[in-house]
Amino acid sequence: MSISEADVRHVAMLARLALSDEQITRLQGELNSILGNIEKMQELDLEGVEPTSHSIPLRNATRPDVVRPGLSRDLALLNAPQAENGAFVIPRIVGAEEGA
């Protein structure tokens, strides 16, 4: 599988990264080189092998439905680049109305 420049641009959009043409070109080469080295894995016989998402056989990890103290509003907004009336401020939203 080879990654095209269009693929790289699409992935940059998905990842919300504004990359320069130069970065796109360099990343295309690097990603192809890294994935090329990974090809060997594709040759393994994985028929019937279950995927492992965790290495420990833990199941059903939950917590009881109990309220715990959270952050004060000051701490919640401590690192906010912009805040107003106790809320985080964002610029206008273009291209999508009312959520995804």
Binding site: V11, I34, L46, V49, P51
Partner: peptide, 29 residues
């Protein structure tokens, strides 16, 4: 940026099984 791009690509539509799925099975082995 390189890792985010690589990871986003590996999870994106059409490549999940070839990359992430295969990697998780390799992990089992």
């Amino acid at each position: 940026i390189r890792r985010i791009m690589l990871g986003t690509y590996a999870l994106s539509a059409g490549y999940y099984d070839a990359y992430y799925g295969t990697a998780q099975k390799t992990r089992t082995l």
